[in-house]
């Protein structure tokens, strides 16, 4: 099986609405089935990224918190 291409996006220390804006910008530049690993420290990041996923229809592969960092892996579906 072909390895899934994963892009890294660091949104640490960025505030609302920047993490979502950065994700939206990145998703435009990558291919379908590729993934983005986003790291953010915005306290609203979990709620925001989940809402964004629900509305845009892309996939949230995983979400984890390590200290202040929140790490989400998103897969482009279309």
């Amino acid at each position: 099986m072909e390895e899934i291409k994963k892009h890294v996006l660091d949104c640490s220390n960025l505030n609302c609405p920047m993490p979502i804006v950065r994700i939206a910008k990145t998703i435009r530049t990558i291919e379908v089935n590729e993934q983005i690993e986003v790291t953010a420290t915005d306290p609203a990041f979990k709620a925001d990224v989940e809402a964004w996923i629900r509305k845009t229809g892309h996939l949230l592969i995983s979400y984890a918190e390590e200290g202040r960092s929140r790490i989400a892996i998103i897969e482009k579906t279309k």
Binding site: I20, A24, K25, K55
Partner: peptide, 10 residues
């Protein structure tokens, strides 16, 4: 902020 957020939602 809302404008940029909405644009991010497509």
């Amino acid at each position: 902020i809302i404008a940029n957020g909405a644009a991010s939602f497509g």
